[in-house]
């Protein structure tokens, strides 16, 4: 496949950055998007140029490390996948592809396509856990969990924290991520004692970094795990109820 890539290049956090264009003429349709970048980087290194920096780790869509904007869509044109699961056969011969980093005030660009997503860690640190006494693990079946609750909790827990929701949101809001984390614990008996304090604190940190939701549902469309905006409604309910506690 012949492709023309426009990739955002930025030396460091303080550099202004700009797009660089790379013509490719031997891209295999069986490559993943990241493998295609790997091959580009090999050639850049051989010719003495700086390789394109991008985040990646598991390359099977479960770690949440990778993630770039491809032609204006977080994780690219295919739905329900992370960037690492996108294959070049999804593009056509002769396509021009524009690759940009996730843009948000909360996610400063460190280099090229690599952004710092640590505000997500701060949101988790504010309440995305349960407080338990340490000691030997309790017998798992001592606390019955209704099947539907368990299913909903698992649906929310699928969130891998990649940041695509923030990246795609025209408001730069982190509602989908935060709501998945709040809902996941609010659905389970172990998470319920702290549910309202958790909602208050996590929302507070979220709002100190991110924009405000307008229910566009763009986040849901690009989420590699298909997290539903129903969880955003659930977070709103948890938060509003916490105001009456």
């Amino acid at each position: 496949m012949r492709l023309k890539l426009h990739i955002w290049r930025q030396k460091n956090a303080n550099d202004g950055g700009s797009f660089a264009t790379y013509a490719r003429d031997d891209v295999s349709p069986d490559m993943s998007f990241l493998e295609m970048l790997d091959v580009l980087n090999e050639e850049l290194i051989e010719s003495g140029e700086e390789p394109v920096a991008f985040d990646h780790d598991c390359r099977e869509g479960i770690c949440g490390s990778c993630g770039v904007m491809i032609n204006g869509s977080a994780h690219g044109p295919e739905s329900g996948t992370a960037t690492c699961q996108l294959h070049m056969r999804k593009f056509r011969d002769g396509d021009e592809i524009r690759v940009e980093p996730f843009r948000s005030r909360a996610f400063p660009i460190l280099k090229d396509l690599v952004v710092d997503r640590s505000p997500f860690d701060e949101i988790i640190g504010a309440g995305g856990y349960i407080s338990v006494n340490t000691g030997s693990a309790p017998e798992a079946n001592l606390i019955p969990v209704p099947r539907d609750d368990a299913e909903r909790a698992m649906d929310a827990a699928e969130c891998i924290g990649c940041g695509a929701c923030v990246a795609q949101c025209p408001n730069g809001a982190a509602q989908l991520f935060t709501s998945a984390k709040i809902s996941h614990l609010a659905e389970l008996p172990q998470g319920r004692p702290e549910r309202f304090a958790r909602a208050t604190k996590m929302v507070e940190v979220m709002e100190s970094y991110f924009g405000s939701c307008t229910n566009f549902a763009e986040c849901e469309a690009v989420c590699p795990k298909g997290i539903s905006i129903d969880f955003i409604a659930q977070m709103n309910r948890e938060y509003l109820r916490s105001r009456f506690k």
Partner: peptide, 12 residues
Amino acid sequence: ARPKRYYTLTAQ
């Protein structure tokens, strides 16, 4: 929340 805009942001 997004001081620098995208070159393209595709509506989903």
